[in-house]
Design a protein around this nucleic acid. Structure first.
Lengths: 231, 231
DNA sequence: ACAAAAGTGTTAGTTTTACACCCATGG
DNA sequence: CCATGGGTGTAAAACTAACACTTTTGT
């Protein structure tokens, strides 16, 4: 297979992350307001150019450290490559997009040009970043159903109703606390700490605190339909 | 955010595809035997360098056309980016890997250095291509459970037992024809053509022919657990 | 008629949904 | 003692697994 052309085009590679967090009852994404052209004043995803001696995973973690304390990133995974030739003006640039998750109890100090925006009412975004955010949201919603990825959105300890709020905000519809607890418990994902939280000023029974038994994503419902024979 | 270094490294970008097909009762991948160093005589995935005016999707389709008739590719999707700095010797090269699927009735003419290898007994492979093949296999297995992706592995028309063979070969365990038919029918994925196939020399009832109602991948079992309220 | 292969019926088991009911606390 | 929120019990519904049984063909 001969080379198609001897002179290869100059290619740049960037990494971008849609960092998601549930805050104030809605799923939000970390965006950065561009100061310069092109697309000045539009909001864009954090990231930057891939360095010469790092994988894309290393690179996105390094670059996010400028925006968020990396220790607050509970989960990072590849989303997809965005490579339309005209996706950004100027030199050809390929982007590897990531999904990042921050637990809802974290409130990282942000640079002044950076803010959390609800994914359902995004401001005017730069380049193809809007599509990347939607892709991240869809991936997260899907994985909430068949993996333990909730651990990356929830605090280390939480009540079931707080967890219900996180799931509801992410999925976009009301989830039943009763059934959420049962499903996650049967799968062995939840574990009671033994502690309880104090009820609010309106009273009510104190809620038991739980934690996820496992941090680190794993598939919990691998075979939706065609399961391997049980024996 | 200033540029990290003024001199950016020379980056190359390649696209690679694990093209899978069920043939002779096992799931196989299309590999190409390298003629030159590095890794001469090892088997590698088809693909090549990204062109200057094409997306990675366009590029992999173009490059696969040299190995397989593109019309025989029933499905192509991105798998992941492989970007370890030392993944290939020589200049830094990032790879976008794809999963491609060919229906089991197709038998494309292949170049002499190219052959189908069972994914469970791969020959010595070049670079990180072994990992890419396994990733493709796992992705396919997972999607078989919650999407209609079987259409891309099956011929246009097929008997349920032929489909069972395809599913069994892909998943690596025996699937029940009875339940396969029921599950796919209830989901509205299968449709009888009205035709029947002639039984083999050993006799037996003629099998009804079916086709997938929809070509083009779609998720058929989107909410494994946390479904939106039905009303 | 018999063997082989395909397809249907039926039952059992599992998982999820929905909702009623009980529990613990603040005022 | 009542309102409020948390938690459990339980029945109904949906779906899958397993297997027996019927149907249709070739020899």
């Amino acid at each position: 297979m001969p080379n198609r052309s001897t002179a290869h085009p100059q290619l740049a590679h960037e990494v971008l992350a849609a960092v998601l967090q549930v805050r104030a009852g809605s799923l939000r994404v970390l965006l950065w307001e561009r100061g310069m052209e092109p697309h000045a004043h539009r909001w864009s995803l954090p990231g930057g150019r891939l360095g010469g001696d790092e994988s894309v995973e290393d690179s996105i973690r390094r670059q996010l450290a400028e925006k968020v304390d990396v220790r607050q990133l509970a989960h990072v995974e590849q989303l997809a490559v965005f490579s339309a030739p005209d996706r950004v003006p100027g030199p050809r640039t390929i982007a590897t997009a990531f999904l990042g998750l921050v637990p809802s109890d974290n409130d990282p100090a942000l640079p002044s040009d950076t803010a959390w925006h609800p994914v359902d009412t995004l401001p005017e975004t730069a380049f193809d970043h809007h599509a990347i955010v939607l892709r991240a949201r869809d991936r997260l919603r899907a994985k909430l159903s068949y993996t333990n990825i909730g651990f990356a959105l929830a605090p280390p300890e939480f009540t079931v109703s707080a967890l219900r709020g996180i799931y509801s905000a992410t999925l976009g519809y009301r989830v039943s606390a009763t059934n959420l607890q049962r499903v996650l418990s049967r799968r062995g994902l939840l574990e009671a700490t033994g502690e309880t939280s104090r009820p609010g000023r309106a009273g009510g029974r104190p809620a038991a605190l739980y934690r996820f038994t496992c941090r680190g994503m794993q598939v919990t419902d691998p075979f939706a339909v065609f399961r391997p024979p049980s024996r």
